[in-house]
Each structure stands twice: as structure tokens, then as C-alpha cells.
Design a protein around this nucleic acid. Structure first.
Lengths: 213, 213, 213, 213
DNA sequence: AATGAATGAGAATTCATTCAT
DNA sequence: CATGAATGAATTCTCATTCAT
């Protein structure tokens, strides 16, 4: 997913150009995550990303439309992967509780040990509500729809209480996970801490949503 | 539009210093909160705050050291008031469930005239990651401590389950409230919608945290 | 015409700010004409105009939208004045030949001793056909319409031959005047030379357009 | 789209050097004339010339020192051909009126296959004022000298009036032709329109220059 | 010869901040 | 105290040119 080259089959010699293009794009994204996390989106200079990625300033613009696009691409890239992973998990079936449990673990697991990425997504993206609205919204809505879908299914099956709107439950689930991630980056950032939070929050959330006899 | 003050008719010259000063400073802060919320800290121009407050650009600098200082002042100025308000609410007593319910309402700005307090935490907190870390974190921690305190008390009294860390519950509570506020802004922004979300989420959250017999 | 201040009537003291705004705009325009003429529009840096006008770079943007706007403003300013002058001349009446004669003198007279302006209008403006099309066209068409109108009148009165389209005659008249001005700036740029060219060309043009018995 | 050459089928390998080289250089020049004409020298990107010529960006630099050199080469390359063409037309003899009539046609690109020559003078000449002065002026003067020569001859033979300087007549002739071409481009750009303008203008110009009995 | 990805110098423009009035 | 015109440092982005393949 990170750098699959189609042209590799033609394979002329070996050392042609060490992965023509996906390589550089990925390097820039990785550097951007690191620098955005440390300094924030607005305080980060394009030249810093370039330097950190070991490319020239102009090269950034061969792979991204502008600075905004770099941030949005981080978001799309990761949210996209998260959505794929969520859908795969979801297909494993199980009760709604099991599925939601796996969603929580998956989502916080994505950030575990990747404090930088967590910070970019939880803090930086919001610094520009314009960005969030203009670019993030569609993908983000897909994500919320997915969560709401899982919850609605659990309601239909009678496993979850149905006096709570699936959409509201989904929104607060996302908010809580996002908040846990943010407070985690502000505090120690230890992987174990986040894992524990995921477990306790999961139990609490599910209990709140469980249908009473 | 540019500088129509309602209260200006009372006492023009006289030279009372405290009132007009505090008045203007307050107007600037209020405007800043509103504009930061709508456009984000970095996308907001100092001249926009000035215009919205009905003062000249330069006037901002009579009350604040610079643009950063405006944001920081929002925290320092408001967070105290918010904590006071939360404590007042809290002191009205009642069960932990009742107290948390009132916090949720306050936090989502549903209490009359308290909206500007609520905005500090749900909107302005993430505006600048540098400022967030430097100034916001301690104040934010006081806020989290307060929430955690209420929850811990409920646990001690046996009303709330005690297999969930008060701190984790507090963090996810804040996250969920923040997430609901954000998604609400991105969507319709209708007061009724938010009120409904607050009610359903409150029920869900409290149910998840209630001690089972 | 160059710096008429409205507010002077209020006349507070004397040395308030030596002509509030029209002054600076005019200074920038004048400097721009000079620098554009010497180096061409594209080779001219905004900072050079600013320096030459004795203002800060940013000040340019208080009076003009951008660099393009400076060029267009030169054009509009001068063409506008030319149109006014042409209409005034035209109202003096006389035969078509007399009126066209005065137009030629007026137009080349406008540039006489103002080589810089001549060069900006004859050369620089065309460097960007986009500019010419987007901004210049309306005003330029007014100008051509005026010329064509004078010619058409002469045709109606029987003074001028009517087997030539007024519009075509107008276009070639403008082209010839513009060409004379350009070649004049490329050559010596002596006022007398241009005056002589105006006279000889006028005779030739009118003879070509006169109705034969 | 990227490099489909029609004539490439003839003789692939062989290694003839002269032909392909001249071919490509010619294609680049032709494309450059076209693109410069449409967008102006400065607004034209080297990559656009390359694309339009069906070569890679870098290839331009195998044939030309830099972008300026492309424009200069257009002059140097074409102006000679234009002068040759003008002289050929001129040598066909006839009265001064006939010769000037043919010049007008040639200049407005109305003679088969001569349009690209015409474009040099009517379009490319004013693209860069720096280049115009440095390189264009001498060549342009040769052109004006030629026109003036034809007129002077007509004066000597008694066909044309001699109270107008040949040089001034030549300058205004060029200006008028240039103006007609430009306004024609800004308006409809229909070949028939231009042809009509050429005819009417020719008649007018010659009538103005004819010696009266 | 040809390519086109990569480079990086250079320029327009913005906007927080100042300070004369 | 208040103003807002003026400032100029700072930053994004473009694009002519290079050079490894």
C-alpha cells in the first residue's frame, strides 16, 4: 500500500532509480507528519518539510498541489487506510459489541507508537476548519457512516438500545477516541497507556449502549 | 457597523478609566473568541478581530501584547470563569449523575448566556498546537481534574462503577463533548439538534458509567 | 489633475500629512511608468517601483490590487484623460479634416516629451495580451468608437469618401499613431521629431480619406 | 500527443544528423512563434513550447541557449526570410502602388504560406522590450529601410507625392498594418475580415500618398 | 540525441505590528 | 486613549535550467 510500483515488472537492470515516484511522495508525507507534529501546521515552513525529506523545495510541488494538500493527503491517506481496515475487521462478524470493541482497538492501535501521526490528525487538522470542511468532510462522513451503520445493525438485532440515534452515538464515539488520542499525546505518549485507555473506554461505551433486559 | 456602541450614551467625557478600558478589552476578547471559532487562529487576521469588535487595528495592541497574547488571554481569562461556573453547578449538589448531566449541558453551551465559556474548551483549545502545549495544557489539566474529581466522588459514593479510571472517563467525556460540538458545527448547527445530542449522549454516558447492582 | 485633494477645505493646521492619499498613488504611478519604460513590465520588480516611489513594498498594495493593476491603471488613467480631451476637442467643431487633424496632434502631443509613457503604452501593454484583452479592451473600444464616429460623420457630410469602413479607418489611424510613437521612442525621442511626423502623417491620412470631386 | 512525428517513417536509424536536427529546431521555432503570439513571451512557459513542438523540455536546450535565445532566433531566423520575400515581391516590378499593395498583403499574411513570416513583425516584435531594443531594433530598421526605399523610389519616379518623408510614411504604414492585425485578433479573427481591411486600408494609404496632377 | 524528474533561485504578496497624528 | 496608513520581514510557489539515465 505504501509504495507498490507497477513498472517493476519491466525491471530493467536493478538500480535504475530506487522506486521512481511513490518513494519520494511517501518520504515527503512521512517528514511532513513529523514536522507538523513538532511545530504545528502553520508554523511549519515548506522548506522544512523539504529539508527533512531530503528533497528540494520545488520537489514538494511535483507531488502535492500546495502545502494544504500535504496536510489533507496525510489525512486522506491514513483515514483511507483506517476505513479499509475497519471494513475488513467488520467482515469478521461477531456481535455488535465485539465489532465495536475491535473498531476501538483498531483505531487507537493505528496511533499507538505513532504519536506524531496522532497529533497531526487530532490537532493540526482542526487548525484550519476550512481544510476540514473542504477536504476532510466527505471521507470523514464515510467514516461516521460506517460507525453509525455498525451501531444501527446492533440495534436492529436487539443487542443495542435503540433510544439513541446511531449517528449521535457514532459522533460521540469518534470524539471520545479522538480526545483520548489527543490527551495521550499531550501527556506521556506511552503505548501502554493508550492501550489501557482503549480497554476501559470500550467497556464503558458498550455498557452505555447495551440494551437492558 | 464599524463602531456603534449601545452603552456609549451614558457618561461620555468624565474620564472614568476602568470601565471603558475593561469594556473594550472585553469586547475584543469576545470578538476574538467568535472569529477564532469560525476561522481558526491562524486564518484570523488581527484586522478582522478589530473590525468585529468595532475598534481600530492598533487598539488591539493597547490591550494585548500581540496576536498570540489574545489567544492566551482567552484561556487565562475564561478558563477561570469556566471552572468557577462548573464548580457552582457542581455545588448545587445532587447525585453524580445529576452533576455530570449539568456539566454536559454547560459544556455544550446550552445554558443561557454561558455559550462563550463553553467555546473556550470546545473550540479554541486546539487552535495553536504551540500555545496549546505551552499555556493550554496546565489549564486544561485543571479542567480535566475537575471532571475526574466529580467522577471519583461518584465512585466513592458507590453510585458509579469503579473499574474505570476517573481520568480516562473524564478524557473521553471531554472528547465526546468536543466531537459532538465539532460535528454539529460542520453539519446544521441548529440549537435543537445539539440539545438532542446532549440528552442522548448524556444518557448513554451515564448508563455506561453507572454501577450495576 | 495630478493631486487635487478634496479634504484640503477642512484645512486643519498646515503640515498634517502632505496630501493624504492621491499623492502617494500618483507617485507610485509615475515611478512605475519610469521603471516599466526602462526595464519592461515583466523585468520590473515591485520592489523597484516601491523604491523609486520612496514607499515600502507593501504600500503599493494599499493603492493597487497587484502588479498587473499598476500597469492597467496607467493605461486607464491616460486613456481616460485622452478620451476626455478628445471629446473636448471634438466639440470645438469644424470640418472632419480639422477635427481629425486635432485628434492626431492631441494624441501624439500627449506623448511628446513623455517618452516613458509612450513606451509603456506602446510596448509594455502588449506584452501581456491577457491584460490588453481583459482590462484594456472596453476603454480601448470606446476610443476606437470615438474615432470611427468622427469619420462616419465626415462621410455623412460628404467630406470624406464613403467606400472605406469608418471602423477600419479608425483602426489603421490608431495603429499608425501607435507605430509612430513606438518607432519614435526607439529612435531619438526628440519632441520635434514626433511633431513633424504628426504633421506629415496627418496630411497623408486625410488626403487618403478625402472625397474626390 | 507526446511525440508523434509524421515524417518519421522515412529512414529511422541511419544516423543522418543534419536533417533531423534542422527538423526539430524548426518545429520548436514554429511552435514558439505560435505560442508567443497567443500568450506573449513572458506568459509562455518553456514547457508549453516543448509540448506544442512534441519534444521534451530539455530538448529545447539542445537547440537554444535559453528562452531568450528562442525569441532572438525567431527574429534572426525569420527576419532574413521575410526581407528576402519582400524583395522578391518587390522585384516583380510594377508601379509603386502595385508593389506597396503586395507588401500589405504579404505583411498581413494573406499570401499563401507566408503567415508565419508576417507574425514575426506583427506579433513577436513587441514581446520583450529588452530584446526588442537589443536585437530587434537593427533588424526592424532594415525592414523599415526597405519600406522607405520602395516609397522613395515611387517619389523619384513621380508616382508618389514627395512632401512626405519616406521614413515617416514607412513607419506609419507598419503601424497601421500592425494595428489592423492586433485589433483583428482581438475581435473576430476571421480571414475574410482581415482581407477586407487590407483592401480598404491599401486604397486609403495609396490615395493619401499618390501625387496629385 | 533525447528525456523529464529534480532543482533552487527568485518574486509577488500578505499581514502583524508600529507610530505620527 | 485611539486611530489606521505605512511598513518590511517572511513565506509560498513558480519555472527556467540541469543532468543522470
Amino acid at each position: 500500500m505504501s509504495g507498490a510500483e507497477a513498472g517493476e515488472t519491466q525491471g530493467k537492470r536493478r538500480g535504475r532509480r530506487a522506486a521512481p515516484t511513490g518513494d519520494k511522495r511517501e518520504r515527503i508525507l512521512r517528514s511532513a507528519i513529523r514536522v507538523f507534529a513538532r511545530k504545528g501546521f502553520y508554523a511549519t515552513r515548506v522548506s522544512e518539510i523539504a529539508k527533512s525529506a531530503g528533497v528540494a523545495d520545488g520537489t514538494i510541488y511535483l507531488y502535492f498541489k500546495n502545502k494544504d494538500d500535504v496536510l489533507v493527503s496525510i489525512f486522506e491517506d491514513r483515514i483511507g487506510k483506517l476505513l479499509v481496515a475497519l471494513r475488513e475487521e467488520s467482515e469478521k462478524g461477531g456481535t455488535a459489541a465485539e465489532r465495536i470493541g475491535r473498531i476501538i482497538e483498531l483505531q487507537l492501535g493505528l496511533l499507538e507508537g505513532r504519536r506524531d501521526l496522532a497529533e497531526v490528525i487530532t490537532v493540526n487538522l482542526r487548525q484550519s476548519s476550512r481544510l476540514l470542511k473542504q477536504y476532510g468532510a466527505p471521507l470523514f462522513n464515510q467514516y461516521l457512516d460506517f460507525l453509525a451503520g455498525v451501531i444501527a445493525e446492533g440495534q436492529r438485532s436487539g443487542e443495542l438500545r435503540d433510544d439513541v440515534s446511531p449517528r449521535i452515538a457514532a459522533r460521540s464515539l469518534w470524539g471520545a477516541l479522538d480526545g483520548l488520542a489527543l490527551t495521550w499525546t499531550l501527556a506521556d505518549g506511552e503505548p501502554a497507556t493508550l492501550r489501557r485507555a482503549a480497554r476501559e473506554f470500550g467497556s464503558m461505551f458498550l455498557e452505555g449502549l447495551r440494551r437492558r433486559a
